[in-house]
Structure formats: structure tokens, C-alpha cells
Computed example of a mutant assay.
Amino acid sequence: MPDARFLVVFDADSTLLRNEVIELIADEAGRGADVAAATEAAMRGEVDFATSLRTRVQALAGVPLAAFERVLARVEPTPGAAELIAEIHRRGGRAAVVSGGFLEVLDTVAPALGVDRWRANRLASAGGALTGTVDGGIVDAAAKAAALQEWAAAEGIGLERTIAVGDGANDLRMMAVAGLGIAFNAKPAVRAQADLVVGPVDLRQLIPLLP
């Protein structure tokens, strides 16, 4: 595969995907509303992301792994996602996803959309059910920025040829290190700090911004 011309790194939940996946999983435990409120606060930047994520994941304890089939059936890519990724590839770029969400979903959804690289949290399980903990380190704002830099270096792409797309406070650090930081379907604090704000929830709106 020839060297890539540029790199676009997406957040997953409420950016590349329409859903907040943790809320879909929490629905399986009957705790969807509680987790949704906590997620909203974290995305607005009102609470520390890692602390909030650990608390929300505790609410998933006992959800059977078999439930992920139902969760995946409810996951919806954001309109235009497949078309944007196809255009990134047509122009010689790479598409990546770094998420504070979960590999249990991204490992299926990312390759189906044509994503080249992805990174997210792994949920711990035992006896066929979630334990309510994260397996390994948490993908927080610092980890997102580090992933963008790592992937750009691996592809031989200068940071000035990287684009970061996100909606929540957890995305601000990767948006700051990218050549272009785009607030998409974003919270007010993110819109205020982004290089560019895209309002319509249709990822095809980003195609004219590609190099």
C-alpha cells in the first residue's frame, strides 16, 4: 500500500455513529437513562472523562455478552459515513477511529465502514457477562491525541495533513494537535474551540474539506 497523503481521525459515538453505544449497552441492564445523563455531562466537559466512564461502566455489570448482538443491530452509522470514508480512500488518505467507547462494537462496525485503524476501550467479562470494569487503560483525551500522532507517524504523514473530527470535550486534545480540528454535531465548548464547525449531521459535508 503506498504512503497515505493525509489522515482523518474520527470520534465514534455521536460522530461516526449516531448512537452513544454505552447507552445502548446500558439499556440491556435497564439503566439507559441514568447512563445517558452521565454521558451528556462527560461530553460537555463537566466531569473527568475517565472517572465518569468507570462509573458508567459499573452500571453495565451483569449484561450478558450475547446482548451485543442486539446492541450491534441498533448501531447506526451517521448519514454519509460510508461515502466520506470512500472519498478519503479515493483521494489517497486513511480513515481512523479513536473512541472512548468499546471495541466490542467497533471491531464489527469499523471494518464494515472501511476504517483503516481503530482504537477503543475493552470491557472486562467473566462467565459470559460484563463485570462492570474496563480491561486495561482508558482511552481518554490524552490517549486520543496520542493515537492521532502515532498513526500519522506510522503512515509518514505530517500533523499538518491530519484532520480530527469530534463532538465532545474528550476530543479537544486530538483536535488541537491535528492540522484541522472539526467540531461535528458538537457540544458548545467543542464548537467554541474547533478550527471549523459543521452543523448538518451528514458526514458528506466534510468531503469538500478533504485535501
Rank of each mutant, 00 (worst) to 15 (best):
A42R: 12
L106Y: 12
A82H: 12
A67K: 06
A86H: 07
A82S: 14
L84D: 13
M43W: 00
A41L: 00
A33D: 15
A50Q: 04
T108Y: 11
L84N: 10
A36Y: 00
E83Y: 05
H89G: 14
R54Y: 05
R54P: 10
A37Q: 14
R90C: 07
A38N: 03
Q58T: 09
L103R: 14
T51P: 02
A36L: 02
A26N: 08
A36S: 13
V109P: 09
F68I: 11
E28P: 04
R56Q: 01
R70S: 14
R74S: 12
V98F: 08
A112I: 07
G45H: 05
R94Y: 08
A41N: 00
A38H: 08
R31S: 10
G32H: 06
G62S: 03
Q58D: 09
E28W: 03
G92L: 05
E104T: 09
S52C: 02
G114Q: 11
E23L: 00
E104S: 13
A95W: 11
G45V: 05
P79C: 08
G80K: 04
F49I: 00
S99P: 12
V63I: 05
A82I: 06
H89C: 06
R90K: 15
R91E: 06
S99V: 11
G101Q: 09
A110L: 13
E76V: 04
S52H: 01
T78G: 03
A81R: 12
T39W: 00
R70M: 07
I85R: 07
R56W: 00
E40A: 15
A29K: 08
P79A: 06
L65W: 12
R56M: 00
E76W: 02
A29Y: 01
A96V: 07
D27F: 04
A36C: 03
S99I: 08
V71D: 06
G32A: 12
L103V: 09
V97F: 13
R90E: 14
V35P: 06
R31Y: 07
R74W: 03
D34V: 05
S99R: 13
V71G: 09
A33G: 02
V109S: 11
T39S: 00
S52N: 12
T39D: 00
R91T: 12
I22Q: 02
T78R: 04
V105S: 03
A95L: 04
A96M: 11
T108P: 02
D48E: 13
P77D: 05
I25E: 02
A66E: 15
T78D: 01
A36E: 01
G114W: 06
E76I: 01
A67R: 15
E76S: 11
A73K: 14
P64A: 09
I25S: 01
V57D: 07
G92W: 10
G30N: 06
E23M: 01
T55W: 02
G80W: 10
A73D: 14
T51G: 15
E28L: 07
A37M: 12
V109L: 12
A50V: 05
G62I: 02
A67W: 07
A29Q: 03
A67P: 07
V105T: 14
F68H: 12
R44I: 00
G30Y: 05
I25P: 03
G92M: 06
G92E: 07
V57Q: 01
A38G: 07
F49C: 00
A81Y: 06
R70A: 15
R44T: 02
F102S: 10
V47F: 00
